[in-house]
Nucleic acid binder design. Structure first.
Lengths: 221, 221
DNA sequence: GTAATATGTTAGACTGATCTAACAAAATTA
DNA sequence: TAATTTTGTTAGATCAGTCTAACATATTAC
């Protein structure tokens, strides 16, 4: 059996290793806001359980078993977020903290039911892919998304996902009526700070800072 | 702050003390399947926190604060059970274990939303009252329910609640199409074992053991 | 290439939640 | 009421999960 605490380490490690495939004790420590020695000993435990590859002074990696388990926790988290938004009427900026708790519920039937009631969604309310029952993630399309900040003047794109969304960012997007699926046209880019002026359904000219554009994942038209 | 473990002690104590107003360390120990010394020291901790009246060798009682807190956990449990049955399509025999976990979720908004979506129900799927936001329980009608086993031949009653329902009992009731709200008529009582032959919607003559009748709470017609 | 800094590890302490063994008090039985 | 049984308490161990302090290894800067 795996504890809630262990699940949290796995999940954090999954997130950190998603790009490079590995992460440091230090990064994980910061991510979880738990001191390094604690993280270190937990890594040894997870290595004992066959979930993490641990060698002194080497970067951390998840084993296949660890990856699968982590993905299944992420699956529960994202299904929950989707359920909260679609079936209970929460805003996309409100659901993270609740899902953070519900993801630890032990009841396959509960999550299967959610999945079913939602019609087997492929992405969560922020556009992130929901791993399948076996912990496999459909990254095909997802990895092909580009940042809005990498677009050129005149480009027209579709807003597909938010990367590393924070409460504040989501509230900001709410306030500008910018939601997933919006067709965005880049009208101009300010050379000095790389802020963009864009137009989309309902908004003729909205200014978005580079910091915001960097978080918006889009699909070229 | 109160831990999940502490919440479980409070809840168990609330259940045990609901009739007599007090309970022994021994009873609580059996209820939770936790050894007496552990329970004992936890009672001291909860006394420190002002949730339990604890004196050596005296029966345990909840303080008003403890009662309120316990009732709020019960509220979350029962709202969850109702939600799982009404909104997610689970059977009344499936929801206890899931609710047992969800009751510990810390998110007032989550439970308020459930309550709202359910139309502010007064009872859970087993007929037990749902405490209100302030931890007050509407016992007025509930305490007036009587056991089916206390009825006489010829009585006609309405099935209102199940007391101390177990999975097996609920499955048994399912198999007999006996559900809350059913009008039950006591046709005869076997003097030897006090088993009853009753009739209700769809069933002309169904035999119910005394053990079963003892768990069915009914309202006289 | 050494010094300084950052990162990683070990050792040891603390708290929460559990246990067993031993002892004490209360309740029951004879 | 004395003996026995049940219930309650104390003491001390263990494990999970956290910390700080001290030490070790890598990395970076000069």
């Amino acid at each position: 059996m795996i504890s809630q605490t262990e699940e949290n380490y796995l999940k954090a490690l999954w997130n950190l290793t998603s790009s490079k495939g590995e992460a440091s004790v230090n990064e994980l420590s910061k991510q979880l806001d738990i001191k390094m020695p604690t993280v270190n000993s937990m890594m040894k435990r997870l290595a004992e359980k066959g979930l993490v590859h641990y060698e002194s002074y080497k970067p951390l990696k998840l084993t296949d078993k660890g990856k699968r388990l982590a993905a299944l926790i992420i699956r529960k988290h994202r299904l929950t977020e989707m359920y909260l938004v679609e079936k209970m009427g929460f805003g996309w900026e409100e659901v993270h903290d609740i899902a953070e708790q519900i993801e630890h519920i032990q009841s396959p039937a509960f999550f299967e039911k959610m999945d079913e009631l939602l019609g087997f969604p492929k992405v969560d309310p922020h556009g992130s892919p929901i791993p399948d029952r076996n912990g496999k993630v459909e990254t095909e399309q997802y990895i092909r998304y580009i940042k809005l900040s990498d677009c050129k003047e005149g480009d027209t794109v579709t807003f597909m996902a938010v990367s590393h969304s924070s409460d504040e960012l989501l509230k900001f997007l709410n306030s500008r009526d910018l939601s997933l699926g919006s067709k965005i046209k880049v009208k101009s880019i300010e050379p000095f700070d790389e802020s963009m002026t864009v137009s989309y359904a309902g908004r003729k000219a909205e200014m978005l800072s580079n910091k915001v554009c960097d978080k918006l994942l889009v699909r070229p038209a």
